[in-house]
Each structure stands twice: as structure tokens, then as C-alpha cells.
């Protein structure tokens, strides 16, 4: 899901950086002093999720969980994802300095957009699983779509690459949806306040 360095054109890098900055400022405004620790812990969990490989067919995919982060944190997921992506860049050289903003917009923005519709459904016990499934699925779908749009705005010549990348993400969307569904139903039973569920 990460866009590597050296591909995207300069206007996109600057635009992505600007959008990510705005998102981060809004997100930071939503985090009060009491919740810094919780947000940091979730950011660390998001980082750990990327280390976990889930088998699918003959291969395996690693979890993204941007939808879950957006469900739990709302706008605060943008700074949390920024931090996790920065750490991934420092530790594993996934992504990098110049594409950090673009990657935050792709993953964080995808998460926010993919899960905003389904947040309300969490309060209804019967729809909870569906909310998890759909937000997991659509968050990865939106992120893959943003990634393709980024590539296509960089140049017409990336049409083939974008198609390959979007197709490669189709199984990831399904697995993310299913796993987010199970995580949401687990959290609703064990610690509903993480999801902001009023019981």
C-alpha cells in the first residue's frame, strides 16, 4: 500500500504534504492531553499490525487496519497514522520522507472516508459486524483508489501499473473486511469503550 519514493511528481508530493498537514492539525486538535497516551498506543498497534502476515490462498498479506483506526480514533487517526508511517520509513524504509504526506493521505484519508459512513452503525448491536466488515473493506478500497489516482495524476503512463496495483489489493480488501469485522465484534464484547459504544 505504500507508495515508494521517486515515483510521484512534485506537485502531487506538495499537494499530499499540504493535505496531510491540514489533516494532522485537525487530528491534533481532537486529541486532548488525556488521550495522547491512548492515541500513541493505537499508533504503535497500527505499526505492529503491519508486521502481521495473514495467509490468503497461496500467499499472505499484511494487515493495514486503517479502517479500524479511523473507527476508533476519528480524525485523530491522521496524526497516529503519520507517526506509524514515519516509524516504518525510519525502520524499514517503506515509503520515505518525500512521500510521507501522500502516504498519510492515501492510508489515513482512505480510512476516514471508508469508515465515516459506518461509524453510526456501531451503536446498533445487530449492525455492528456489518459496520466492521464494510469499514474494513471500504477503507482499503478507498486507499487503493487514492493510490491509483495518485499514480494516474502523476502521468498517463502509469495506467497499467495502477491497474496491477488495484487488482493486487482486491484480496486484501476482503481479508481486511473480515478481520476488522471480527476485531469489532470482539472489542464490542470485551471493551466496548474503545469503540465509543454506549452500553
Amino acid at each position: 500500500m505504500h507508495l515508494s519514493e521517486g515515483i510521484v511528481s512534485m506537485p502531487i508530493l506538495i499537494g499530499g504534504g499540504a493535505l496531510a498537514t491540514v489533516g494532522t492539525i485537525i487530528g491534533l486538535k481532537k486529541i486532548d492531553e488525556d488521550h495522547i497516551m491512548t492515541t500513541a498506543m493505537l499508533s504503535a498497534t497500527f505499526f505492529v499490525a503491519s508486521l502481521i502476515h495473514v495467509p490468503i490462498g497461496p500467499g499472505s498479506v499484511h494487515l493495514l487496519l486503517n479502517g479500524l483506526m479511523a473507527l476508533i480514533l476519528g480524525w485523530a487517526c491522521i496524526p497516529a497514522i503519520l507517526v506509524a508511517l514515519a516509524l516504518q520509513a525510519v525502520f524499514f524504509q517503506y515509503g520515505g520522507l518525500t512521500v510521507l504526506g501522500v502516504n498519510v493521505v492515501i492510508i489515513g484519508g482512505g480510512g476516514l472516508l471508508g469508515s465515516c459512513l459506518f461509524r453510526g452503525m456501531l451503536q446498533r448491536p445487530k449492525l455492528r459486524k456489518l459496520a466492521g466488515l464494510l469499514s474494513g473493506f471500504f477503507s482499503v478500497a478507498c486507499a487503493a483508489l487514492f493510490l491509483c489516482i495518485t499514480l494516474l495524476t502523476t502521468g498517463e503512463e502509469f495506467v497499467g501499473t495502477a491497474q496491477v496495483i488495484f487488482a493486487a489489493h482486491l484480496p486484501v480488501m476482503v481479508v481486511e473486511g473480515v478481520i476488522t469485522m471480527f476485531i469489532v465484534s470482539f472489542l464490542a464484547k470485551v471493551q466496548p469503550e474503545i469503540l465509543g459504544i454506549k452500553s
Binding site: 491512548t38 502481521i52 478481520i179 471480527f182 476485531i183 470485551v190
Partner: peptide, 21 residues
Amino acid sequence: TYQTYGNLFGMTLVKGWQRAG
């Protein structure tokens, strides 16, 4: 498998949440 991963990760989140508090 996916349910197990979901529960494992959910438990990790719960523990992280409680630890944060």
C-alpha cells in the same frame, strides 16, 4: 483463521488500551 487473528489482535488492542490508561 481470520476469526482467530481478529480475536488475537482485538486482545492486543484491549491490552494496549488498558496499559495506556
